[in-house]
């Protein structure tokens, strides 16, 4: 087996008494799509935050492409090839779609201490940005203010920004959340075209999306990974079924515990 692209070992993260991540081991192979699922409050967002570098784990290590990146913060990890979308769409709302993606290209193009030339007239930023917008199907919307895009388009834009940084690892936090069924179908189709070319960690609630995209699935419950396996294995796993069957009950419990 090839050395994993990303290797997380023993990740722990607590907020007060709540153990949001409890000794998580996780790995992602080059070119693999590895989904993380789990009931609400299972700690998915905390987990992805530690991977992206926005949160610092209390214990454990994260290795990426053979390098220990545990102590690196988000911008430094981004420059090493991490790219992410957020659970709540995170774009530059006051800028056009093309500006948004061009900024992602710029972020990857080395330092931005360039003071005179107009960035919007630089083909080296605009051309790749246009190509990525075409790729995600927003080519015709390049000049539209990001705030004025439809919700689904904003999610696409966010993925476009992630891709424009030329990432080695895509962290997608619920990419189809809040989308209509048409929109989410289009997004799933698009992501499936990335499969194999791109290493993806996918956190998602939508089980259709997860089972059609993932090579492997890890199930996170109360900060712990209770199972990892192929979609078939996960479907057949008794612990997983139990975790999902009692979803509502457990949710109430989790809330009570947090209080």
């Amino acid at each position: 087996m090839a050395e994993a692209l990303l290797l997380a070992r023993g990740l722990c993260k607590s907020f007060g008494a709540l153990r949001a991540s409890d000794n998580i081991d996780f790995d992602l192979l080059e070119g693999e799509t590895h989904a993380v699922i789990g009931p609400n409050g299972a700690g998915k967002t905390t987990f992805i935050g530690q991977l992206s570098g926005d949160l610092h784990p209390d214990a454990g290590t994260i290795r990426f492409a053979g390098e220990d990146v545990t102590s690196l913060r988000a911008p430094a990890r981004a420059r090493r090839g991490f790219a992410r979308s957020f659970q709540i769409t995170s774009i530059y709302r006051e800028f056009t779609a093309l500006d948004n993606v061009a900024l992602a290209v710029q972020a990857r193009a080395g330092h931005s201490f360039r003071f005179w030339r107009r960035a919007r007239e630089e083909d080296v930023l605009r051309d790749p940005a246009r190509r990525v917008l075409e790729e995600v199907g927003l080519g015709a919307r390049a000049g539209v203010l990001a705030a004025n895009l439809a919700h689904g388009e904003q999610r696409q834009l966010e993925v476009a920004m992630a891709l424009a940084t030329g990432p080695r690892l895509l962290l997608l936090d619920e990419p189809v959340a809040g989308m209509g069924s048409d929109e989410s179908q289009r997004m799933v189709e698009f992501l499936s075209r990335l499969k194999g070319r791109q290493s993806i960690i996918l956190v998602e609630h939508d089980m259709d999306a997860v089972f059609s995209l993932a090579d492997r699935i890890s199930v996170l419950v109360y900060g712990r990974i209770i199972a990892t396996g192929t979609p078939q294995e996960i479907r057949a796993n008794a612990d997983v079924r139990r975790a999902y069957l009692g979803d509502d009950v457990q949710l109430a419990w989790a809330h009570a515990e947090r209080r």
């Binding site: 992206s52 957020f86 995170s90 530059y92 061009a102 900024l103 972020a107 030339r117 107009r118 920004m161």
Partner: peptide, 19 residues
């Protein structure tokens, strides 16, 4: 300029910039 776009982007959405 690129510099200006970088500071305006940070003003617009710092989390996105870091990401």
């Amino acid at each position: 300029s690129r510099f200006g776009m970088a500071i305006r982007a940070a003003k617009s959405n710092e989390a996105r910039s870091r990401a």
